[in-house]
Design a protein around this nucleic acid. Structure first.
Lengths: 147, 147
DNA sequence: GCTTGCGTTCGAGCGCACTCGAAGCCGTAG
DNA sequence: CTACGGCTTCGAGTGCGCTCGAACGCAAGC
């Protein structure tokens, strides 16, 4: 656990910390789809796909091109984080639908996240067990694994 | 970490520990495909599929039914552990092919496992980062996550 | 002898999550 | 004016890893 350098932390950095993403666009600035792809590791193709299926809702410029503001970017990051924990797209859609339905669904959203949290922790434990098996096999081949 | 009750540990239990699997068949005994499915969590359909694509090589009884001995069972467990860390089936096939080629491929197998080990560790770290994001979101909904 | 249950092979089908490609628009550089 | 790069939409295609179903075999119990 790191200690917080509390007094002099700039608001912008705080904001990024809050969003857990140092690569977020500065407030008031926007990003193109290519930039978002670059920064999040989600391909432009996937970003369009996510939008088509209702996960994202990204504003456009006069020419019709996507313009990712802070909000849109944050949602991309959130979705990609949930995706990388193995949450199925179907469930993400349910979640986003609830967000769009308003505050009344917050308890349900909370329940969903708590449940998913359990699943992710289980997944981590499974990976750790499998890692032990791999380490054991490595040892039988005479390999070394640092603790 | 549990302390080892060293002096009286039966060989059989040791063997199972070595194989990282308490549900392994006792030496000399065998299991049916249904039993293996039950114990490993790999469906009978998948077990047959794995065999078809060359991951497994399971002996038969006179009636042609699969008979899983210690060896066969151990390989099922090993493959399923690698699968659950996200190793693609293609790579597992490469690994098994190397095993079949004999001892000469051991350095390559070791290299492969060391590389994969790295990937699994990275995966665990990614999950932990994502977990933090989820926990943060849970907190914004007023939920609690125990440390 | 017949049913039940478990196994067999093989090919085909499925669900998921992208991923690609064609056709077209827009703004800037030469 | 034209060429180019990067964006747009939309439908279709892909790869992976199963998953299923049809048709059949075999052994035990009624």
């Amino acid at each position: 656990m790191t200690t917080t350098p509390a007094p002099t932390l700039p608001d912008e950095a705080l904001e990024r910390l809050r969003r857990q993403d140092a690569a977020a666009p500065a407030p008031g600035t926007t990003l193109t789809i290519a930039e978002v792809a670059e920064r999040t590791g989600v391909s432009a193709h996937s970003l369009r796909y996510y939008e088509r299926i209702g996960l994202l809702d990204v504003p456009r410029d006069p020419a019709g091109n996507r313009v990712y503001d802070e909000r849109a970017y944050a949602r991309v990051v959130f979705c990609s984080r949930l995706r990388m924990t193995g949450m199925p797209i179907r469930e993400l859609q349910r979640y986003v639908a609830m967000v769009n339905e308003g505050e009344a669904t917050e308890p349900d959203r909370l329940r969903m996240l708590l449940e998913h949290r359990q699943a992710v922790q289980a997944q981590i434990r499974r990976l750790q067990v499998a890692l032990e098996t791999i380490d054991f096999k490595i040892a039988t081949y005479g390999g070394r694994t640092e603790p």
